[in-house]
Amino acid sequence: MTTADRCLIALSFAALVPLYVQLWGRDTQPQEARVTVDGQEVLRVSLFENHRYDVKGPAGVTVVEVADGRVRCVSSPGPRHLCERAGWLSASGDSAVNLPNRVSIEVLGRDRRFDSVSY
């Protein structure tokens, strides 16, 4: 084994440390949101890449906005605008739904306060 080999092995182990922290550490802040149309995932976005997305559904276009660790439904077809009324979503498990357009926006994360909610 040459010195270069040893360096490579040492570097490989060193590179594992941040991977452990990221994958096995407790993620206190949600990182991602999932957008589905009719149960099919159409978008999985980082909450830290500010952007607007047009999501097409059977009733039209739902506009989804990501900004500074939060996500919201900006506009969506439907008579009552329940999706927009949900406001900014930032905690694990937060969600907004537009039934007419079959669109669901959910914040993903492992650190959920409740496993499910009765409403």
Binding site: R113, F114, S116, V117, Y119
Partner: peptide, 10 residues
């Protein structure tokens, strides 16, 4: 995994 499910009531 042995922990009960935690359910919220709205």
């Amino acid at each position: 995994g042995g922990q009960p499910w935690r359910i919220g009531i709205r």
